[in-house]
Amino acid sequence: MARPVQYNLSGENNVKLVTEGPEGHSGEGFFATSLDKVVGLARKNSIWPLPFATSCCGIEFMATMGSHYDFARFGAERVGFSPRQCDLLMVMGTIAKKMGPVVKQVYLQMAEPRWVLAMGACASSGGIFDSYSVLQGIDQIIPVDVYIPGCPPRPEAVLDGFMKIQDLVGKESLRRRNGDRYKELMGSYGIQ
């Protein structure tokens, strides 16, 4: 069982990680719940992040991976550097327009289900780089699940953003990726 991380949250004891398992029927020696929930539980606690770090947000992420903030607590111990193995694309830092196709290709190489986290002002909106050469937010080329504000965000914010991703992953229906709405979203980015 994950250990409590309540110490930074004043007055809030019911932290997501320490809540009990999903709803279901339990009896002596068995526990029954829906497949969705089990898969969600497994997925959200074993996310493999792919760090796409281009600048100072990447440095903050390194701190997040370190022992003090210990990203591994969230089941994200294994940072992958191959998009084919990873579930979560973490875009951290300024993405120049020339880098845009690279980000998109990395995203396309990831297998479904895949999630995207935009960390910091630059990845989310271009940030201070209101310039002809900088992509004004990665959501112009790929769909984004969670945005982390900040310039750069502190590791706590990264952890919070990651927990938001875990929330999404845990609650996602197994059929969502086959749905029309999802296909429409992908279509709007020109992705099959």
């Binding site: 327009k97 209101d130 310039s131």
Partner: peptide, 22 residues
């Protein structure tokens, strides 16, 4: 340095520095 699709010369004064798609 710039993307191949760029259809103008960004340092000429008639073009604003800021990204116009925003």
């Amino acid at each position: 340095l710039n993307v191949e699709e760029m259809d103008y010369f960004p340092m000429r004064k008639e073009f604003p520095l800021e990204e116009q798609t925003r």
